[in-house]
Amino acid sequence: MTDATPAEPTAGQIRDLSRGRDMIVCEDVSKWYGDFQALDKVSATIKEQEVVVVLGPSGSGKSTWIRCINRLEIHQEGRIVVDDVELTNDLRNIEKVRSEVGMVFQQFNLFPHLNILDNVSLAPIWVRKKPRAEAESQAMALLERVGIPEQAQKYPGQLSGGQQQRVAIARALAMEPRIMLFDEPTSALDPEMIKEVLDVIKTLALSGMTMMVVTHEMGFAKEVADRLIFMEGGQIVEENTTELFFSNPTEDRTKLFLSQIL
């Protein structure tokens, strides 16, 4: 919000990320679904305020990976450390990580039986234990930030897809997370609604939020990402800064993917 001035260079280039703390550390993370290996020794580090876009064909394990970071899926080997808290069976660690990591889903997953205001303020009240009045005024502020304060009393079914996804972002932000994960946030949207959602995500990126985004929107990746990660077959194939990734990909598979998608 603070430095939301549209800048020619990407956010990463004006910020010096090298000295930032490690927010997410993955070491040799592996996961199987029965016979099928979904993640194969995935290792990566994401710094504070960094925006990382994960690309790859469908079934490449990018969604599984991002969901492991929030422990919606449980990894079977390797370590995941989020903000110095390792994800283990420890109840306290799981609670801590989940309340520090916000997540936005492809299908929005708003709670259909609650109105928009309650959707956003429910978790702050019951998880963060905030008084209702404070939680609701914060929720209104967030709805204003994503541009739909007038819809507060409506129900999710009455909103368009783009509006629903913006509410979902507000809901995640209401928990005041330090990291945001986006799992294909625009894949279920009609083309004319993609832009309004991407704009919100862009502003969020410029405000200095640490983010991991799984997406197929190349333009968005070019504009916002500090770094790109290309996955295939559960492995990280290539990992590079945005500029180098598009201008000079090293791996053949990356080249093939880019040639198909661009």
Partner: peptide, 20 residues
């Protein structure tokens, strides 16, 4: 129960995993 990374029967590369 220390962490799920130590599933018995697996060939986990334990050298990389710092003692948690």
């Amino acid at each position: 129960n220390t962490s799920s990374s130590e599933s018995p029967g697996s060939s986990a590369p334990s050298t990389l995993v710092a003692a948690s």
